[in-house]
Amino acid sequence: MMPIERQRQIFEELNKNGRILVFELVELLQVSQETIRRDLATLEKKGLLYRTHGGAVITRKNQGNSISNKTAPDEHALSFNQRINENIQQKMQIAKRALDFVSPGDCILLDSSTTCWFLSRQLPDIELTVLTNSLRAVQTLAPKSNIRTICLGGEYSIRYEDFNGLVTEKPLKDFLINKVFFSCRSLDNDGYLREGHENNAHLKQQMLLASERKYLLMDSSKFLHPSFARICHYRDVDFLITDSIKDKELKQELAWNGVNIIDCSQRSQPTQIINS
């Protein structure tokens, strides 16, 4: 059972009874106490319940409501076509800077973000192997004869113009991938990169595990915002390429955790960055 399905069932039980105990949910859902406590923490963060000693009670304002109307991840997410018209200049600037870290002979992985699509448009026609789950990126790279393009298949989404699921993840283990370039929905104030849907988050986790170096392409509008599904902590990223970081505390925290920051708004770059 997926986390969102389990959490919906927990919420429905709370709606029926007003309160519920952890051991009752363990028996009902056949999962561990730790899993139930994580689910309750997630639902509490969304304002749907209050945790109590040994269980939880529903918040008064949510009695009679359906969780599907309040917490369904990505329900109102913008389509790919809508997102390519957001922050265009910033994404182009980030993609152009990312080119400095692409070398002939590389095997690189691109996710299905719009920023990586901007990167695919700017990639020179040099000897590269590019793996991607983005149909739009595949179409963009197809005319470039020196680039070997490998499409990670799977379940296709018309809305997001990409492939997802176990079929998409499986081939990642079979390749030696030098670099992954990816983006995400947000960087939360708890230090975690997040996506709007757990399937997208899990795929990006597998992309990061399969790659030697990790490049996060993120425009400044995504900093310090919550989102549904956790990908990883920012300390797991090697490079952050962004148009600007205005929050000085965040910038310092990133540096302390070993993240090389490539700030496109600055002319000079960190001296520790030598090799791509």
Rank of each mutant, 00 (worst) to 15 (best):
P124T: 03
L187N: 09
D125H: 07
N199V: 13
L119Q: 00
M92D: 06
E86I: 15
L152Y: 08
Q252C: 04
I231Q: 08
K251D: 10
Q139I: 10
Q90C: 09
N146M: 11
I58W: 09
I150P: 07
L119H: 02
F11H: 10
N65P: 01
N85P: 03
K144V: 00
N81E: 14
L109D: 06
N133M: 04
P104K: 07
Q82P: 00
T59N: 09
L176A: 15
L43K: 11
L216M: 09
L135F: 02
N199Q: 14
V180S: 02
F182T: 01
N81H: 13
G105I: 05
E44P: 07
L203E: 04
K45M: 04
F182A: 02
E27D: 14
A201F: 06
Q93W: 04
I4V: 13
F175N: 09
N15F: 09
Y215F: 15
N15T: 12
K16N: 11
L48K: 03
I4Y: 13
Y50I: 12
S244D: 12
E249F: 04
V22M: 05
F181S: 05
L14V: 08
L141Q: 06
E161S: 10
F11K: 07
K170N: 11
L141M: 05
M207W: 03
G165A: 01
N69A: 14
Q139K: 12
N178C: 07
A56D: 09
F223K: 07
I274H: 09
A210Q: 04
K248S: 12
L14P: 06
G105L: 07
A56W: 10
T35H: 05
F23T: 08
R6M: 13
E169P: 01
T35Y: 07
F239S: 05
